[in-house]
Design a protein around this nucleic acid. Structure first.
Lengths: 263, 263
DNA sequence: CGCCGCATTGATGTGACTCAAGGTGCGTGG
DNA sequence: CCACGCACCTTGAGTCACATCAATGCGGCG
């Protein structure tokens, strides 16, 4: 059980609860929910219970009842998948600490996607009701989530596989950096297959591209360990809409600050 | 001015205000904001002013100040575009009556995308503050918007151009149907180019596919007038992940009720 | 040791983009 | 009223990126 790389086949449902911790003492404090909130009285009332989710386990499955709750990740990381038009599960995104799960299910009776831990993780359960004192903040994270999803969709319209992978790596780098980890060296929590599925490519293409980037001295890779050697070069690659279709339009050139938030 | 087909080059900023109308007497009432709300006192307090937006005009542009407001479309339709990684504007979606604009900008200082009317339209301005009495509903539409964007991303991962266009047509059909228009016959509000841009294809491909569908007796097309002849066939096409990559994964087969909400 | 899943690598096919040219409908101006 | 111009749309031939198929290497686990 628990292969070196893995997550995928035979997920389990395990979920253990852990002792309550106050938000104010949480490592993810600066990035997570009430990032700007100075009123700590409200902050610590937000969180219901904490839930440990071991690697390859589901936090929730498509079809599970929602119950007006969502989750903030304390540590660890998740992949999120749901059925595509053909009924096949496809990865819709990866989430890491201080990011949220199930924001897309708030108005719903039951979840329409499944969240699987990529490593041993822990999440905080938050009831929407408890967000009342922080409504503007709550709304902004919902809104931001919409933007993030739009960014994913934009990425996928960038036909070229190169750009997708480059943007993906840059996005991860950015997110690690913000969390205090090295933005230049990190370990991928997900398999090539997961990456490929998320980017709408094949694992073979991802593999080849990784080595292409390596040959171009943009990155270093061995297995899941990635080092960004030339982030600027990567950015140029991600931006070069090379063979991408569309492109023209009205043209009100705006610059996107590049990867922001979850992918 | 105002060519037969158009929207695209030389958009304007015109915006006229019109006399207040009560939500309770609005044509879009059943689909729009407080769909289920029985308490009409709250309903009519939601809307600030109404804004007429003529064809090819912007409701807002990327960079405009937000001001804690969003919009519900009373009649007409819009396209929404923003800069991709290369700084080129790309269409992120189309919106029609009883759908919302600027939900992605709620926490922000300024808009990061531009909304252009595809035909003469009118929108209702809604301040987030006024949503207090309808918070659960408000949250559900935000949440639903996230889901819709995920659906777009899913669609775009379905590599095959056939499926993208089929799904797009079905989605439009569904949305027209829900609004009391014929789901089988409708007129596209957007150009081939807009469709192509949105779907990550080229106008040529869209054109060819339209005729391919016609040859297969799935639809009828002349210009922008579309008739769905064999919706079931189209659905099968949209679902047949034929040459799409990925596909496998853990497999917890779930069926997606197909097109729901905005694309 | 042998199995299995993941990752890599190569050979081949094809879908969709590219480039280029021609058709069509509407608006404009003579 | 007709001719022209301009988008938009269509259609065709050639090319290339990525998927597909297939085989091998590698590491962990039973």
């Amino acid at each position: 059980m628990l292969n070196y790389l893995s997550a995928g086949h035979g997920t389990r449902d395990a979920a253990r609860f852990s002792a309550p911790v106050e938000c104010s003492s949480c490592r993810a404090r600066q990035l997570c929910l009430p990032a700007g909130a100075t009123d700590h009285r409200n902050v610590d009332k937000l969180v219901g219970r904490r839930i440990k989710v071991s690697r390859d386990s589901n936090l929730y499955k498509a079809g599970d009842l929602v119950g007006n709750r969502f989750y903030a990740i304390r540590y660890g990381s998740f992949k999120n998948y749901r059925a595509d038009a053909a009924g096949q599960p496809r990865i819709t995104g990866f989430q890491m600490s201080a990011e949220f799960l199930a924001l897309d299910a708030i108005g719903l009776q039951q979840h329409n996607c499944t969240a699987v831990a990529l490593e041993d993780s822990e999440v905080c359960e938050i009831s929407c009701g408890s967000m009342k004192p922080l409504l503007p903040f709550f709304h902004s994270i919902l809104s931001k989530e919409i933007t993030d999803e739009q960014n994913v969709a934009l990425l996928l319209r960038n036909t070229r596989a190169e750009q997708r992978l480059a943007a993906f790596l840059l996005n991860l780098s950015w997110r690690y950096g913000v969390r205090g980890f090295s933005p230049a060296r990190f370990r991928l929590a997900m398999s090539r297959r997961d990456i490929a599925d998320f980017l709408g490519l094949t694992p073979e293409s991802v593999s080849r591209l990784m080595f292409q980037f390596k040959d171009q001295n943009l990155i270093n890779v061995t297995g899941r360990d990635v080092t960004l050697v030339d982030a600027i070069g990567l950015k140029q690659l991600a931006a070069n809409a090379g063979g991408a279709p569309g492109a023209a339009l009205d043209a009100t050139p705006q610059t996107l600050p590049l990867p922001r938030g979850e992918l």
